[in-house]
Amino acid sequence: MFKELDPLLHSELRLAIVSILAGVESADFSYIKGITKATSGNLSVQIDKLEKVGYISITKGFKGKVPNTSCALTETGKDALSKYIEALRSFLPNI
């Protein structure tokens, strides 16, 4: 039986953000932007959506004199990614 895919994670950019954060404690906005090659505006919108549902947490600060935004995956986000991968497996039983 197919499990339902989380619509919030079933988008290329949001899934990429969550996947990057899954392997680290936190990552800067510029780092995520570099890997995903998304525009700043689009990335901001998607990060905002993920923060609103509690999948990621955002810390704003400064690195030297430059403003810096750091993102981290929350426990809710980790659970959501884990369930998402489990649901994907139900669609692809051979893996």
Partner: peptide, 16 residues
């Protein structure tokens, strides 16, 4: 990278 929908295989490849 865009805000597009992926199929199951693409999703797993992207995560990896």
């Amino acid at each position: 990278m865009e805000d597009k929908q992926l199929n199951s295989t693409e999703s797993l490849e992207l995560i990896q």
